[in-house]
Amino acid sequence: MIKLKTENLTKRFLGLVAVNKVSFSMEEGEILGIIGPNGAGKTTFINLISGIIMPSEGLIEYKGTDITYMPAHERARRGIARTYQLIHPLENLTLIENVMVGSIFAKGHGLREARTKAEALCHELGLTGLDRDTSRLSIFEIKKMEIARALANEPEVLFLDEVMAGLNSDETKDLIAMVQRIALERHLAVGVIEHVMGVIRELTHRVIVLEAGELIAEGKYEEVSKNPRVVEAYLGGGTV
């Protein structure tokens, strides 16, 4: 079942077209890789879908409803969640309180219920020391907290914007397994932006490639990574 789709989604910043007529869709239970060189428009694409910025043109449909211009908080309530490439912990709330926020406002749970749910989420992700300030957390813990915060919305669609960046290989392995399990158990559609192709290969069922705002390829990682256009795009900025 299609959870989310865009048609000709476009975002212009002054002269720059950051996202250019992108049409795609995501199925329930699918882990989709979103790749592309630096500045390709991946984060902007997710900002559009989550409502952090509004599109210049095009359509976003979620579970059959047009949400193109719906406010971000409303999309969060309906089940679209995400993490941020530049981490945004709420520094005046403790670890557990950070995770409670989505439960309280996206799902409307009371404080006590939100705490119970947040504790369960933290436990699931292997987070301990729940009353710590976020300034005391390691990078790995912060990343897991960001995922827990997004999951507290009880989403149906989840986007992870470079959550693996800055982690060592053991931590990356852990997190890959965690994301797979989370997606499977919750029947989530997950969009994963990563620069490390090993992660994409292992984690995703399907990949879309953005370059200069345009969707230039789509398919299984093995196919896409051989696509000449993709290879060329990456030769400009790095390797596949």
């Binding site: 969060a76 912990p89 926020v101």
Partner: peptide
Amino acid sequence: TAIRNNEVSAKSSGIDI
């Protein structure tokens, strides 16, 4: 507190700022 710390984060958690 969420609004004060980070409005973008707050919105993503369903807060109608």
